[in-house]
Design a protein around this nucleic acid. Structure first.
Lengths: 138, 138
DNA sequence: AACACATTGCAACAAAGTTGCAGAAAAGTT
DNA sequence: AACTTTTCTGCAACTTTGTTGCAATGTGTT
């Protein structure tokens, strides 16, 4: 487990540091998406605010995590599936945000249906975000 | 045109003020979505920053405009279709964001396909955001 | 025109995110 | 293991974005 985390970092040419191991660990542990504030809360005073920002940014650049567009426009991060590589996210699964508890899920098994765009438009990425009640709040 | 704007405001029990007419006019003129910053830029020094925030907030509450979730998590606003009423947005059309010029379109004619959620999940709202190249940049 | 009420602008604040830089910690080298 | 090089972190200062209270002004109504 701990080795797996170091593995991921090394594979992406990142030096293995305490903050990166810790934050990446949080994502592996939780199966929902995390906001910057969640990470700050869960790591306590351990890391500087700036470090968390920079770590998340690095992870996004390397394709380790991806950002999720939300209806209330807060920034959420979640682990990418293995197929994501640097600068190239294959993030075509559905995201679900619970209105009650606020938890965000990556519904990896549900793929986004193809949409027909008007003449002249070409799609590169598609994000589908569903909000409602999750299995715990229903 | 000018009357139409006043009409919309009156229909929503809002007093017709300079800032509201002006901002609503911007939305009618532009057929793409606008960010707070766009509005601030286009109206120059005419209105206070706070007024723009409050005006947009009021418009959203009344169902005159809706917010669009974006991948980079900036807040965008666009005119609602007629069917939206106070506190009840029927906003199930697809949004398109151009990676090149940054313009956001509401593809009113394209409806979001139904997705099957896992056991225990129930959907209330669905947002589909496509990014790529628009007709002008392709 | 005069009234009640809604809206605006200002100031002050709070939250979120960014940048430069010196010191500390990894990684690479001998 | 000790040294050097490179990368990363923490601090401080700052910018941007959004919010709140309140006095002053504008709008709708009679």
């Amino acid at each position: 487990m701990k080795n797996e985390i170091a593995e991921i970092l090394k594979r992406n040419q990142l030096s293995v540091t305490e903050s990166r191991r810790r934050i990446l660990g949080l994502f592996q542990f939780s199966n929902s998406a995390l906001a910057h504030a969640d990470i700050e809360k869960q790591t306590g005073e351990q890391f500087d605010r700036v470090t968390i920002y920079r770590t998340l940014q690095t992870f996004v650049e390397k394709g380790i995590v991806h950002t999720i567009p939300t209806a209330d426009n807060s920034v959420l991060y979640a682990l990418c599936k293995d197929e994501c590589s640097q600068g190239h996210h294959h993030d075509n699964h559905v995201h679900f945000i619970c209105d009650d508890c606020g938890t965000t899920y990556c519904l990896d098994n549900i793929t986004i249906p193809q949409v027909a765009l008007p003449e002249g438009f070409s799609a590169k990425q598609t994000d589908l975000v569903v909000s409602g009640k999750c299995k715990n709040c229903n």
